[in-house]
């Protein structure tokens, strides 16, 4: 995320805000459910918690149509190349949320089978703690990511 060397003018600042606002209000997620966290991710998207309030109830099956990848669950050594491929297929701008302890650090499974932290495979913008994080935690993570986008530049 390279910052600008000179402070932008009034017009560009307003444009930045507008673009960022547009990005945060309809941030479509890629379907990337892996383990327990995927169940909580689905619960977040379902009726009781209703992720549609933040304009992201649509989880896209095609990575081409997705802006946000929520890595929900433990990433095995066998899955890591697949994950990277899905990430590479997503079009810019794209963000990654690492949901739960396993995706963030390997969690309690410090063994031969798991990638110890998905940040070894893809760049992560937001870590959501919990095992699994409840819907409220995930929504907090998403909203914090929105804040981050709003505060950032558009040419990320």
């Amino acid at each position: 995320m390279a910052g600008r060397s000179e402070p932008p003018g009034f017009l560009l600042t307003t444009l930045d805000k507008g673009v960022n606002w547009a990005r945060t209000r309809s941030m479509w997620g890629a379907v990337f459910g892996l383990a327990c966290c995927a169940i909580e991710m689905m619960a977040t998207g379902a009726s009781h918690n209703d992720l549609g309030r933040f304009g992201m109830e649509v989880f896209r099956a095609s990575p081409r149509q997705a802006d946000l990848m929520i890595v929900a669950g433990r990433v095995s050594q066998k899955m890591a190349p697949v994950l990277r491929q899905v990430y590479d297929q997503m079009s810019e701008p794209k963000w990654v949320i690492s949901m739960g302890a396993c995706a963030s650090t390997g969690g309690m499974f410090n063994n031969y089978a798991l990638v110890q932290g998905v940040d070894q495979v893809v760049p992560v913008d937001m870590y959501v703690p919990g095992c699994p994080p409840g819907p409220q935690s995930l929504m907090h993570g998403i909203l914090t990511l929105h804040d981050k986008i709003m505060a950032g530049d558009i040419d990320r």
Binding site: M1, Y112, A113, V115, G117, D119, P123, K148
Partner: peptide, 18 residues
């Protein structure tokens, strides 16, 4: 005789929210 195996955990690309 196969070790449990572990990879050291490190946080990369973790940015502070402004």
């Amino acid at each position: 005789d196969y070790p449990v195996g572990s990879v050291p955990v490190q946080f990369k690309e973790a940015h502070k929210v402004t």
